[in-house]
Amino acid sequence: MTEHLWNYQPTAGHLAGTDLSGYKVEALDGGIGKVDKHSEEVDDAYLVVDTGPWIFGREVLLPASTVVRIDLDDRKIFVDRTKAQIKDAPEFHREKHLGEPGYRDELTAYYGLGGPFGGRLL
């Protein structure tokens, strides 16, 4: 299942070329922030979410597979994780990003087969 971790689910409603910057992000139990940056590249799609004061201005990186629905009219993205699960994710560092050896593996382990979700979408 990890091969799909970095791609949008076909049912999420993602439209290629749509700028998701500024969209609000909703976890299963409430809002977590706004999209600061995103990628829609095949096998490398993700969202960088600015959590604002929720977790002290920290940014988190969410693989695209966590997105279950995109509401283009309300500019909201719904993900299949709780606030606690997102808060416990490996910390995002702009200087590391996905190019840093081991960082993508760490994220894949957390969100994929080796992590608390057992490689399945909730």
Score class of each variant (00 low, 15 high):
L5P: 03
L5H: 05
W6K: 00
N7T: 03
Y8K: 00
Q9W: 05
P10I: 09
A12T: 04
A12E: 00
A12Y: 02
G13N: 00
G13H: 02
H14F: 08
A16R: 13
A16Y: 09
G17Y: 08
L20M: 02
V25F: 04
V25A: 03
V25M: 03
V25C: 00
A27R: 06
A27Q: 07
A27G: 07
A27S: 00
L28I: 02
D29V: 00
D29I: 00
G30C: 07
G30T: 04
I32E: 03
G33A: 01
K34A: 03
V35P: 10
V35H: 07
D36W: 06
K37H: 11
S39R: 07
E40Y: 05
E40T: 13
E41L: 14
E41T: 15
E41C: 13
E41S: 14
D43M: 15
D44G: 07
D44I: 09
L47D: 03
L47N: 01
V48T: 05
D50I: 03
T51M: 09
G52M: 09
W54M: 10
I55E: 11
I55D: 11
F56V: 02
F56A: 09
E59T: 06
L61M: 15
L61C: 13
L62G: 03
L62S: 04
T66V: 10
V67Q: 14
V67H: 14
I70V: 10
D71S: 14
R75P: 01
K76I: 11
K76R: 15
R81H: 11
R81C: 01
T82I: 00
T82W: 00
K83V: 12
K83Q: 12
A84I: 08
I86R: 00
I86V: 08
D88W: 06
D88G: 09
D88Q: 08
A89K: 13
A89I: 11
P90V: 08
E91F: 15
H93S: 11
R94V: 10
E95T: 06
E95V: 10
H97Y: 08
L98V: 04
G99H: 07
E100D: 01
E100F: 06
P101L: 12
R104N: 12
A109L: 10
Y110G: 08
Y110Q: 01
Y111A: 11
G112C: 13
G112A: 14
G112D: 09
G112Q: 10
G114T: 05
G114F: 10
G114K: 11
G115W: 04
G115C: 09
G115E: 05
F117H: 13
G118R: 15
G119M: 11
G119S: 10
R120E: 02
L121C: 11
